[in-house]
Amino acid sequence: MKRYLLLGLLSFAVVLPLHAAEYTIDKKGAHAFIQFRIKHLGYSWLFGRFNDFSGQFSYDEKNPAVAKVMVDIKPASVDSNHAERDKHLRGEDFLYVDKYPTAKFVSTGFKELGDGKASLQGELTLRGVTKPVEIDVQHIGHGDDPWGGYRRGFFGTTEIALADFGIPFDLGPASKTVELELSIEGIRQ
C-alpha cells in the first residue's frame, strides 16, 4: 500500500511542473517590441525602441503566480529615428554600450489583479546597475496561430529614473524618468 501511495505522490510531483507553458518571445517575426518615451526638455516627447532583444517566459493559467520572465536587451540597438541622437544615446552620457553591451530583466514575482491585469516584479540591469522594477501588465490574448503554433501576448508599462541606473546626462527637470512600453508575444514551445 505504501508503495502505491509513494508512486502516486511521485507521479503527481512529476506532473505539476508540466502545467506551466514555456514561450519564446517572437522577435524574429516582429511581434514583440520594447519601446520608450522621455520628455525632451519638457517641451515634447522623444520616442524610441530597442531593435535587438530576446527572451522567454512561462505562464500557467491555473497558477499564474509561478510565471517567469527573462529578457536580454542589446542597448546598442537603440533606435530613436535619428542617427546622431542614437550615437549619443549609445555613448557614455546614456547607455554606454561599449562598457555595458547588454541589459537584462529577470522576474522575481507575478501577481494577478483581475480583469486581465497583473503586476510583474523583477530586476532590471542597465549600465551595470541592477534595481527592482514593477511592470503593470495587461493580458492581451492567447490561442492558435495560422502557422500551427500557439501564442500568448501581454502589454506592460513601467517608469524608471535615469539616475537610478547611473545615467549622468541631465536633460532637465522634466526628463528625469523614462517610460517603457513592452508589447510581448510569445510562441509556445
Rank of each mutant, 00 (worst) to 15 (best):
Trp45Ile: 04
Phe94Ala: 02
Pro132Met: 08
Gly109Pro: 04
Lys74Asp: 10
Trp147Ile: 01
Arg85Tyr: 10
Val106Pro: 03
Arg127Leu: 05
Lys62Trp: 01
Trp45Ala: 04
Arg151Trp: 10
Ala76Val: 10
Gly143Pro: 06
Gln121Trp: 03
Asn81Arg: 14
His88Ser: 09
Phe110Asn: 00
Tyr100Cys: 05
Asp79Cys: 06
Leu124Trp: 08
Pro146Asp: 01
Leu95Lys: 05
Val97Pro: 10
Trp147Ser: 05
Ala118Asp: 04
Asp93Tyr: 08
Gly128Ile: 04
Asn81Gln: 13
Ala83Gly: 06
Gly128Gln: 06
Ala65Glu: 13
Asp115His: 12
Pro146Glu: 02
Val78Glu: 02
Glu112Met: 12
Glu92Thr: 03
Val71Ser: 06
Met70Cys: 02
Val69Met: 15
Thr108Val: 12
Asp98His: 14
Ser58Glu: 08
Trp147Phe: 15
Gly122Ser: 05
Tyr43Lys: 10
Gln56Thr: 15
Thr102Val: 13
Val71Ala: 09
Phe47Asn: 10
Trp147His: 06
Tyr150Arg: 07
Tyr96Glu: 15
Leu89Ala: 09
Glu84His: 06
Pro132Val: 07
Ala67Lys: 07
Tyr96Asp: 15
Lys87Leu: 12
Glu134Gly: 03
Gln121Met: 12
Lys87Ser: 08
Gln121Asp: 08
Ser119Met: 14
Phe57His: 05
Leu46Tyr: 08
Gly141Pro: 08
Phe105Thr: 02
Phe110Leu: 12
Phe155Met: 12
Thr125Ser: 14
Pro132Asn: 01
Lys99Gly: 00
Val137Cys: 08
Ile140Ala: 06
Asp60His: 11
Pro146Asn: 03
Lys111Pro: 00
Val66Trp: 03
Gly116Phe: 11
Asp115Glu: 14
Val97Leu: 12
Arg127Ile: 01
Val137Ser: 07
Asp93Ser: 13
Gly114Trp: 14
Gln56Val: 14
Ala76Leu: 09
